[in-house]
Amino acid sequence: MSLVVVKPQVITSAMLDSSIPEDDYPAWAAGTVYAAGDRVVYAHKVWESVQAANTGKPPPSDATWWVEIGPTNRWKAFDLSHSTKTRFSGAAWFEIMPGRAVNSVALLEFDGLRSVRIRAIDPAYGTVYDKTTMLWTSPGVSGWYPWTFGERRERRNFHALDLPSYRGATIRIDIEAANDAGIGVILVGQQQSIGMGVLSGVRMGMLDYSRKVVDQWGDVELQQRAFARTRSIQVLVENSQLDNVDRVLSGLRATPLLWLVSGQYEQTNVYGWYTDYDIGIQYSRYSELSLNLEGLTES
């Protein structure tokens, strides 16, 4: 398959509605006097007061009064980082009005999900897309014995790449889940195909940020920390498309993207950015694009 890249649409408060309330803490109020350690919600983020007698100062205005803790629970799935998760129980829905045509939806680094229903609802044409996917657990290896008796693994990622492009459509996501479920990233955007196909020889790796600490007596302590997935791929590109590929990649630098490398091997796909690329013009009609990808850190 071609290398498919999905660039996330940045979601603003005007675009999003959800069944998940934004009640992590009380909303900031200008007339309230906050003590040190009090927390409030302001601009979809949680802030903590660092001083007593804190009044009349909006959280972003002065770092000597407030420190940012992070996005609210509702907005953790839209901060483009899967190290934070929107958590809920039983069921949830999201409605996203991107204001532009999108043809891809992805849910990344989730846990506890049972099914997801994606709908695209256009104000003029009605429901133009409606698909439900069961997110069943699966065994780690194939065969009747592992299927019956083996350890089962939950799916962690889902993507729908076949939405019709309707500029005014609302994307509705309905989720059925367990009592404690979480979603790292909800992504909507336009997909792009790069090249004619990914060549064989994909390399999968990991950057592990764990540490080994040795004390003065030689005792070893292993500190497990976050890690990032790495992928190295080669893509066959027609020479007539070289200028366009170079322009596309130049415009996608330092941006978290969903890179879909293979439809057969889910683990080859990665959510992150490219660290570098080079193009070798080797043949009269075709060239090889080499890409090194690095995923966002995971815990």
Rank of each mutant, 00 (worst) to 15 (best):
F158A: 06
V141I: 10
A53Q: 05
V33N: 12
A181R: 01
V4A: 04
V67P: 00
N244G: 01
R167N: 10
G263R: 13
W273N: 07
G195R: 02
I118W: 10
I20E: 00
R231K: 04
V105M: 06
D208G: 10
L289H: 06
G182R: 14
S287W: 10
R211V: 13
K131S: 09
D243W: 11
G126M: 14
S2D: 00
Y274G: 06
E48T: 13
D162H: 10
I20H: 03
V202D: 08
V105C: 06
N269D: 15
V214T: 15
Y209M: 08
D111A: 11
A228D: 02
S284M: 13
D23I: 13
T230V: 08
G150W: 15
A160W: 05
A178D: 15
I183H: 00
Q216G: 12
Q223E: 12
Y34Q: 01
L108S: 07
Y271D: 02
I186L: 15
Y34N: 06
L16A: 04
M97H: 07
S83E: 08
D62E: 10
V141Q: 06
W136Q: 08
K7V: 14
G70A: 03
Y209R: 11
V248N: 04
F158P: 00
L252N: 01
R100A: 11
A169Q: 03
R152D: 00
F227W: 13
L108R: 14
N269T: 11
Y209S: 06
V141R: 14
R117G: 11
T32D: 02
M15R: 14
K45Q: 10
W273A: 15
D276Q: 11
A53W: 03
D276R: 11
T86F: 02
S193D: 08
A169M: 01
D243K: 15
N54A: 04
A36K: 15
F158W: 15
A120N: 09
T86V: 02
G90T: 10
